[in-house]
Design a protein around this nucleic acid. Structure first.
Lengths: 259, 259
DNA sequence: GCAATAGTGTCTGTAAGACAGTATATT
DNA sequence: AATATACTGTCTTACAGACACTATTGC
């Protein structure tokens, strides 16, 4: 057992105060690949069900720190741009048939009953984040744990109310996209116009006019052409672009209007 | 002691599980009166310092329910339109010089020391809400507790990080006002054009052109003229208007764009 | 030459923004 | 009549939305 696992074990079984009980953080990690918006889910080593990469908050850290730490531990991702978008606290939201006193008793090697706080209310402080698809190494993660990208449109059965959390995260992201630039975390450094347009289309769930879209990004001065083209594509090669980071960051601060 | 007070006392002193520890809800209640945006603060009977009307979450209720209940108990307000806008969880945010082991020991009539959870991390799940100024009866509230409206621009010294919470709530409200209609909860049923314009001006913190503002509201069909004027004002009497509630509610659902 | 996709220019309609004069009550 | 505020119409400008043709590569 690693130190971190030992700490958690003591938190679960002995009520250690290193973590806060009755609350958890959950993180909807969005990625983008081959014209599809995806979410990163983990299959726990203990429960055979897909879930959001989440965890508990240490007494010494903020919810944001906890979410960043959990993402690092479970998916190897670092330096994430986290957005806290909602708290889920409907009574009973955290009950799941995969987590029973019997399962926990076996898992922890000691008697656990219904009075454990895990069977009482547990609120979820939920975040979403955007990351480049290729940055995630889906092999390396917790020992015995799998993580995998899933298309937004075809999610598996999920733990607790995690499917609803994803749905709310997507709503929050769609609202955000009208006011803040998006793409820096989701696209490679150099990208083509059709790529960024397809990204916006898959987040918004609607088609955008190529001419108007380009004009908008250019008039905002958000992106600039790189003197490079992407060859070997069997047709006219697209130009590559990058974000104007000063404009991008300013737009994150000040807010913008895109459609 | 009322039942509710007894429950809280047992929660504080005996670790009863009727409430969740290490988390609280806080509510920024905005009101509007005489061209000023205001916030409702309470002066606790126990601590001589102004604070947001907040409280703890019962094990059987959601954070939203808890916030509504607390608002009802402390300010008499009911049926509030609550918006959960942020979680505050920076370590140490909840420490305040007014709350010490000595003070609590005296208050609860028993020895309390630094190990009490109140001196550990307590996260705040924060909401804001809008209400009509006149609906609040600032006399009737918890016995021994005062509540009072304060101008947004001149707040007193406040408990914990509550001033920062108000500042973030105002930011969230300002973002909201661009997308959703506001005013139904803040204005009397019948209001004048200058009144609603002044409301928008005080929330946004900038002046609006009277002609363009009226045109916008009218073209959205959000308000309609009532066949009534407000007399006795020493000059040309203004017409009264009300909201078109079907349009208003639809705009709350669908979202709008105002400037 | 054909297939496939990239890239861009123009027109139109709508609405935001700037601006000032008329209207109607009280005193 | 003077004062104070309510109310509204027009012009200009900017941008969103609709639309179709040319460009460039691989095969």
């Amino acid at each position: 057992m690693t130190d971190s696992e030992k700490e958690l074990f003591e938190f679960y079984t002995k009520g250690s105060k290193k973590y806060l009980s009755n609350m958890a953080v959950d993180n909807v990690i969005f990625g983008y690949h081959e014209k599809e918006l995806k979410v990163l889910l983990v299959l726990s080593q203990h429960f055979p069900v897909w879930m959001l990469p989440g965890g508990y908050i240490k007494s010494s850290e903020s919810a944001e720190d906890a979410t960043a730490r959990v993402a690092r531990e479970r998916t190897g991702l670092d330096n994430l741009f986290l957005q806290q978008f909602k708290v889920f606290s409907t009574p009973g939201r955290n009950l799941d048939p995969h987590v029973t006193p019997e399962v926990l008793s076996k898992l922890w090697g000691q008697k656990v009953d219904q009075s454990h706080w895990m069977f009482g209310p547990v609120i979820s402080i939920s975040f979403y984040t955007l990351t480049e698809f290729s940055k995630v190494n889906t092999d390396s993660s917790y020992p015995g744990e799998k993580c995998q990208w899933w298309d937004i449109g075809s999610l598996p059965e999920m733990f607790q109310d995690h499917k609803q959390i994803i749905s709310e995260a997507l709503k929050a992201l769609r609202l955000h996209i009208y006011h803040y630039p998006i793409g820096y975390e989701l696209l490679p450094e150099k990208f083509t116009l059709p790529e960024i347009r397809a990204l916006y289309e898959s987040i918004l769930g609607k088609q955008l006019d190529d001419r108007n879209f380009t004009r908008k990004l250019m008039s905002l001065n958000l992106i600039k052409k790189v003197n490079e083209i992407k060859t070997g594509v069997g047709h006219r090669p697209p130009n590559l672009y990058t974000f104007n980071m000063d404009v991008y960051r300013n737009a994150l601060e000040e807010g913008i209007f895109i459609f």
